[in-house]
Amino acid sequence: MPFWAWAGSVYVMPGVELASIGDVGAWVPIGTPALGALFSYVGSVAYVAIVEGREKRFIKGAFGKYLSPDVVAEISEDPSALTLGGEKRPLSLLFSDLSGFTEISEEMDAQDLIALLNEYLNDMTQVVFDEKGYLDKYIGDAIMAFWNAPKAVPDHPDRAMRTAILMQRRMASLNERWSAEGDREPLKVRIGVHTGEVVVGNVGGEDRFDYSAIGDAVNLAARLEPANKTYDTLNMVSETTLAMSDGAYRVRELDIIAVKGKDEPVRVFELLEMEGVPLEAAKERALPVYEEAMALYKERRWADAKQRFEAAVAACPGDGPSLLYVERCAENIADPPPADWDFVVRRTEK
């Protein structure tokens, strides 16, 4: 007999479901087990859906304000990529601070001040999000952001450096807009960028915590931002970050510094623009002269270096790094440093 003819028949009567098994003549109740299996399956699917839904809601709630919507969506679809309990990971970190904001806050009406601050923070945060960065926190008008966590970002040094450049462009646009709206002094944003291994994860108590980063690399990045004041620069990036980038940037060497509280020095650069983007004419004239002067400075030819730094200042009056090195050369001529001087400037302020 063909298989399909005897494989089985099902008889359904009120309250009873029986199945015949081949030619054996045995009748087996299948209703209850079948319904049990069905309910078990449905329950399992529902449980998984509930758990996954709860997980996605947690991720969106925890990261919705700190990451761009598309990145949050990616993470919520693949929560396995997250390690929230804490892990060591290389990050590129950015700290920014609005120069002169304290003075402005004393002069402006409270509502106007908050409106200005919110507009500034909104624009700068959008730049971070556009480059797939994580907004760690606002500290007044200051911003802390990082890349490569919670979602891996292989080109995190480049994204952090691009963000610094794009934030400066956005700052220029904001100043133009504010100037057109009324008589207001232009604001400047100082930025420090560094890359290094940190501990990243949920930091806080049981009821309140933040996903954040801690470690020496965080402290160094935070110190680079105010170090800009010494050189009258806007963007400072560490050699570590620059070496890990694709190199498509216009930079100039500033110094070798050891920040307060740290003995290990780091070479730092002024991050000027993307490669191929022209600067103002005076700056373009000054940069090659500055490079010549820096080469002479490293050879301890203080008088020759001073002349070239002065030439850089003549080409671009007010150029901060050139002015600083004119002073340093004069000091070294008057009181030469020892032969074993390592050129490291040890900062005594944050």
Rank of each mutant, 00 (worst) to 15 (best):
P2G: 06
W6C: 01
V10S: 07
G15N: 11
G25W: 15
W27D: 04
P29N: 04
P33M: 09
P33F: 10
L38M: 03
V45G: 05
A46K: 10
V48A: 04
V48L: 06
V48F: 13
R54F: 08
I59A: 09
K65I: 02
L67N: 02
A73M: 08
A73S: 12
E74F: 14
E77V: 12
L82M: 08
S92N: 08
L94W: 09
F95N: 00
E107W: 13
D109V: 04
A110M: 12
L116I: 07
L117D: 01
Y120I: 03
V128C: 10
F129D: 02
D130E: 13
E131G: 04
I143A: 00
K151R: 10
A152I: 12
A152F: 13
A164E: 04
L166T: 01
R169A: 11
R170K: 11
M171E: 11
M171F: 15
G182E: 13
D183A: 15
K188Q: 12
K188S: 13
G192Y: 06
E206G: 10
F209A: 02
F209I: 03
D216R: 03
K229Q: 07
V237M: 06
A243P: 11
A243D: 15
M244A: 10
V251A: 02
R252F: 13
E253T: 03
K260M: 10
V268L: 10
L272V: 05
E273H: 15
G276D: 05
V277M: 12
P278Y: 09
E284A: 06
P288S: 10
P288T: 09
P288D: 02
Y290C: 01
E291M: 10
E291F: 09
A295L: 14
W302M: 04
Q307H: 12
E310Q: 13
A311E: 14
A315H: 06
C316S: 06
G320F: 05
E327I: 06
E331F: 05
A334E: 14
A334R: 08
D335N: 15
P337Q: 15
P338Y: 09
W341M: 06
F343E: 14
V344C: 12
V345L: 14
R346F: 07
